[in-house]
């Protein structure tokens, strides 16, 4: 279910929508009017940027809060990994706004770059926080596993998500159904056997040099 906000002009629609979205990310951003770099006067654009920043901060804070709650319930590296993956849709909201296609091109470029850097910074700080658990009594092996889980399930994966703007949950994609050509490079059981058998070739007698 997505929620829509109406307004009388582009600025009003943007501001009302951003406020509503900051409070509830299920609000659709699909109908935001397309802006150009010169759509608004510089002063109006600055005010809009403040609203956008508030929206980004709200989305980021929601994810940070959710991550904090998740950290309170993890029991091992596997549960941490699962939480990190399950929190990606929450983090993807920030990406959703930062990369919104209706943003003025210059602003969108800057926000897209900024959100990538912000996520990398969060990743780094999160890994450092996990590493510090050692000083608070968690054994070194567990700490290593937690850090490894964080590295294997990085926040940046959300940058690869296909973002939708209608307010629905942003999730990883189902694997698309591929069309296979019959008889084309399908490894049967027999060919897998053959591929495991090894051919022993004599080693070269001298080092070959490129002429």
């Amino acid at each position: 279910m997505s929620l829509q906000v109406s307004g009388t002009n582009s600025y009003e629609i943007w501001v009302r929508t951003l406020r509503a979205w900051a409070a509830d990310p299920r609000v659709s951003l699909a109908d935001l009017p397309v802006l150009q770099d010169d759509t608004f006067s510089p002063g109006t654009m600055m005010r809009l940027i403040e609203h956008i920043n508030k929206g980004l901060e709200a989305a980021g804070q929601r994810w940070v809060d959710a991550l904090g709650r998740a950290m309170g319930s993890i029991t091992d590296a596997d549960s941490l990994a699962r939480e990190l993956v399950q929190l990606r849709p929450v983090l993807a909201r920030r990406v959703q706004l930062a990369t919104h296609p209706s943003l003025p091109p210059t602003l969108r470029t800057a926000y897209t770059k900024n959100v990538g850097e912000w996520i990398e910074r969060q990743q780094s700080e999160f890994e450092q926080m996990l590493a510090r658990l050692f000083t608070s009594g968690v054994d070194a092996v567990t700490v290593d596993r937690l850090v490894a889980a964080a590295k294997q399930n990085p926040f940046r994966a959300v940058l690869g998500y296909e973002v939708v703007q209608d307010g629905s949950r942003i999730e990883s994609q189902a694997i698309p159904l591929s069309v296979r050509v019959e008889g084309d490079n399908q490894p049967s059981g027999a060919s897998r056997v053959r591929s495991r058998l090894r051919r022993v070739d004599p080693l070269p007698t001298s080092v070959e040099r490129n002429s």
Binding site: A81, V85, Q152, N153, A157, Q173
Partner: peptide, 15 residues
């Protein structure tokens, strides 16, 4: 490209 088991399970779920 994601090698993480949890990410793979998530993708399996979506599929």
């Amino acid at each position: 490209d994601e090698t993480s088991l949890q990410a793979a399970l998530e993708q399996a779920r979506m599929t």
